[in-house]
Design a binder for these strands. Structure first.
Lengths: 147, 147
DNA sequence: TTAATTCCTATTATATCAATAGGAATTATA
DNA sequence: TATAATTCCTATTGATATAATAGGAATTAA
């Protein structure tokens, strides 16, 4: 499961992509209320997103947060890695944060690794192409279907 | 990432599928040494697998554990759920353990949910068909390629 | 009776998660 | 320049999960 941090981050980002096309500073409290995220917790999350170069901020009165990049250039894999670490389910199939499994005797012929490497590939295929823009589009398409 | 419990469980099961076709009781210490899993920790894991109906045990002298079912009928999704809970990355896309996301206002048009529902489907497609038999086969096939 | 084993409960140490608290620093504007 | 509104930053907390370990009861084969 995603941590709450990661889920809240995604919700906040999608909110900004959808409601703040002009990229003006939006206050934490505004996002917190709209997306039902505890105020102080969100504060820490947005700070992390800023330090990662995903959000920009303006301090002081009328300050707030806005997207630094185009919504089509921010994807779920990036956000998830930031808060929850590697996407891979085993350290030995991570390609960013690769680590050998301590208990493993022969990585090259490991059938378990083979399976989880496949899982990682498919998961990344989806998460890399799931950008904020894509998610907003999906929402609209779902809303259309319903009416 | 999988917990160590889940990873150790998988390693132990694959070991039994590969090395114990006759399904005789194999002692904890044997599995522990072969697979480099802490003895006492493995003990608890095997007990869980037995309580879940995946392993059988015999007590007393010459006792031990062996597979209860055919290796083709034990898959990764089942084992992972047992130790690490739902496969889904969001509670709202789990179909076994479904739960509404507290903060969510409109599940039906949620683009995030749409993405993670896709991830879950693809992941389960792979994990459901990744049986112990399949994994042993993959190992052999990898070994063949290497020589 | 004994040795070898699983079974079961409790305990521990560490880390992670989910959040809260409080105040410093910054900024717009009246 | 004073003030109100905000982000920035560090520390703390309580709860839960993780990764084990300990010790002995119960069971079984010989």
């Amino acid at each position: 499961m995603l941590s709450r941090k990661a889920k809240y981050a995604i919700n906040a980002l999608v909110f900004l992509a959808r409601e703040n096309k002009k990229r003006e500073p939006i206050q934490i409290s505004k996002i917190s209320e709209s997306e039902n995220i505890p105020r102080k917790f969100l504060e820490a999350i947005l700070l992390d997103l800023r330090n990662a170069g995903i959000l920009q901020s303006r301090k002081g009165k009328f300050g707030g947060y806005y997207l630094q990049k185009d919504p089509a250039d921010i994807n779920m894999a990036t956000v998830m890695r930031l808060f929850d670490g590697p996407i891979a389910l085993l350290p030995c199939v991570a390609s960013n944060n690769y680590e050998r499994c301590e208990e493993c005797t022969d990585e090259e012929t490991c059938g378990i690794r083979d399976v989880f490497s496949e899982v990682r590939m498919e998961t990344l295929r989806i998460l890399n192409s799931a950008t904020l823009a894509d998610i907003v589009k999906r929402s609209k398409s779902l809303a259309k279907k319903l009416k």
